[in-house]
Amino acid sequence: MFEKLIFCPLFVGLDNETIIHLLNQVQHQILQYKKDQLIAYSGDEVESQMIVLKGSVKGEMVDFTGKTIKIEDIASPRPLAPAFLFGNRNSFPVNIVANSDVEILVIPKPSFLQLMQINETILENFLILISNRAQFLSNKIRFLSFQTIKGKIAHYLLESLKNKETDVVILDKSQNELAESFGVARPSLGRALREMDHEGYIEAKGKQIRILDKRKLSELLK
């Protein structure tokens, strides 16, 4: 049941036997949810550290027009909302919905605090994790600030090429999934990609996109 936890960012550096021994010292439970079931509403208080043991969930928000925007998918064995467990406004920033049938390990806040006091590795992992989350959310906010679909595409492609010695991006998502994460309709995304191809920004062939002019593409971010 807990085998995957050795790959969880909170338990990096610990073996399975140690993790089970630590969990046996604190209160915890396992909850199950069906596909598409709502796990938490945006604004609900984060009272426990939740970790996806099986399946995956997604964080999504609804904008002022009623459009649903997917922020990210969270697969086993990642934790949910670790950066919002402590603080003056510790509530879920987005709705959490099951992508599939899922099992979630729930550790109440006092018990998780006890875990970090018992084991310094968990404490250090937690601090690293929330720092990384802050950086991710900062980048996501910047991405959502782009007004045009082409600006969103340009940002996505340029970020995908960071620290890579190539000008080719292999999409790991379908157009439907990309459109959902961009908060736009799939036909609009497809049309924008075709226009960018025609205008010489990119060369798109299926899931392979070659960047033809990085400087020109960067101008779409302004």
Score class of each variant (00 low, 15 high):
169 V>E: 01
136 F>S: 12
207 K>L: 03
65 T>G: 07
52 V>A: 12
14 L>E: 13
183 G>N: 05
123 L>S: 05
60 E>P: 04
186 R>Y: 03
174 S>H: 07
185 A>N: 08
158 L>R: 08
140 K>G: 15
186 R>H: 03
109 K>M: 02
55 G>S: 11
177 E>K: 07
46 V>A: 09
18 T>E: 09
164 K>N: 15
115 L>I: 14
171 L>K: 14
33 Y>F: 08
27 Q>N: 08
211 I>Q: 00
175 Q>G: 15
119 N>Q: 13
171 L>V: 01
5 L>N: 02
147 Q>P: 00
220 L>E: 13
155 H>A: 06
131 S>G: 09
63 D>N: 09
82 P>I: 00
125 N>T: 15
59 G>W: 06
33 Y>T: 12
140 K>H: 03
205 K>S: 07
121 T>I: 04
170 I>R: 04
204 A>K: 14
178 L>T: 02
206 G>C: 10
29 Q>W: 09
138 S>Q: 12
113 L>S: 15
168 V>M: 03
216 K>G: 06
155 H>N: 13
117 Q>G: 12
118 I>T: 07
211 I>F: 02
57 V>S: 10
144 L>C: 14
213 D>T: 01
63 D>R: 03
16 N>T: 06
53 L>F: 08
126 F>T: 06
185 A>W: 10
59 G>L: 09
97 V>K: 13
168 V>C: 08
43 G>A: 10
141 I>W: 02
190 G>Y: 12
172 D>L: 04
145 S>E: 11
42 S>V: 09
26 V>D: 14
148 T>D: 04
199 E>N: 08
197 D>P: 01
18 T>S: 15
150 K>V: 02
209 I>F: 00
196 M>R: 15
104 I>E: 06
64 F>R: 10
172 D>H: 00
203 E>L: 14
121 T>C: 04
209 I>G: 02
97 V>W: 00
36 D>E: 07
46 V>T: 10
204 A>C: 06
112 F>T: 14
78 R>Q: 09
168 V>K: 14
159 E>K: 02
168 V>N: 05
37 Q>K: 02
57 V>Q: 11
181 S>L: 04
203 E>P: 06
114 Q>I: 14
